[in-house]
Design a protein around this nucleic acid. Structure first.
Lengths: 139, 139
DNA sequence: GTAACTGCAAAATATTTGCATCCTT
DNA sequence: AAGGATGCAAATATTTTGCAGTTAC
């Protein structure tokens, strides 16, 4: 698995470094759960500089490895892109779910964002959907 | 119109003060365009303390007068609730549009968020949709 | 060896809190 | 008059930038 991480990084023309491997592993290990900057700092075990985490996250977003999730409370969270988005073009069109109770944020890969028709003064490129509710763990 | 503002405030059990009237007027005047904290500071004409703006916005959100808009870049923007949401319960189910070019964020009242079916481990309460694209002004 | 990445310090930005004063009711 | 709202100062949190040292290729 640690090798898979190397492959992903190289596939994206990124040099393989300790922080990138570790952070990417955290995303893979979180299985669809979105991670905030603070989660990464915590789970990485106090290893990396805050700045490195910021920069790594930005690099991953630019490369299309992870995407940020729009939430109403404007907490900044990221999750893995499933369909290898390339170079800043994200095509993840799955729905996100935010649990009102435990604040967990998950990608729901099985559900795609439905199409909507907009008034013609708006030329849509892509749509995102966030469903808020309560997850099984909190019921 | 300035009277309408008074009415809205009183209807929400808020005392009618200068900053609240002015900020509410800005939202009404923006006609669906979302406003960020900085927009308000600017448009209000340097009149109010930053802190007052933060507090006023929070109060309006709590009362259901405005709602925040979830965006991918996590910019914090607010827009008027149309269907008088009450006491922290927002029912705005319209789609939001974000222009990739001018960064304008608008509520599209004509279009409602479609329903989606989620796996049963998620109990949905409400859904939000943000469409990104280019608006007429930028084409 | 070179270009890219990291860590540290510090700057810039954003948000929150406490408290004294002022305004609305 | 009383409670709530505001402004100011300051604390806290978040993100960005510059630069020197280190690492990947």
């Amino acid at each position: 698995m640690s090798e898979a991480v190397d492959v992903i990084l190289r596939k994206n023309q990124l040099s393989v470094t300790g922080s990138r491997k570790k952070i990417l592993e955290l995303f893979i290990g979180s299985r669809g759960d979105a991670l905030a900057h603070a989660d990464i700092e915590k789970k990485a075990g106090e290893k990396f500089d805050r700045v490195t985490i910021y920069r790594t996250l930005q690099t991953f977003v630019d490369k299309g490895i992870i995407h940020s999730i729009p939430t109403e409370d404007n907490s900044v969270r990221y999750a893995l892109c499933k369909h290898n988005c390339t170079n800043g073009h994200h095509h993840d069109n799955h729905v996100h779910f935010v649990c009102n109770c435990c604040e967990r944020t998950v990608c729901i890969d099985e559900v795609t964002v439905p199409d909507v028709k907009l008034p013609k003064e708006f030329a849509p490129m892509y749509a995102q959907m966030v469903v808020t509710g309560v997850c099984k763990n909190c019921l």
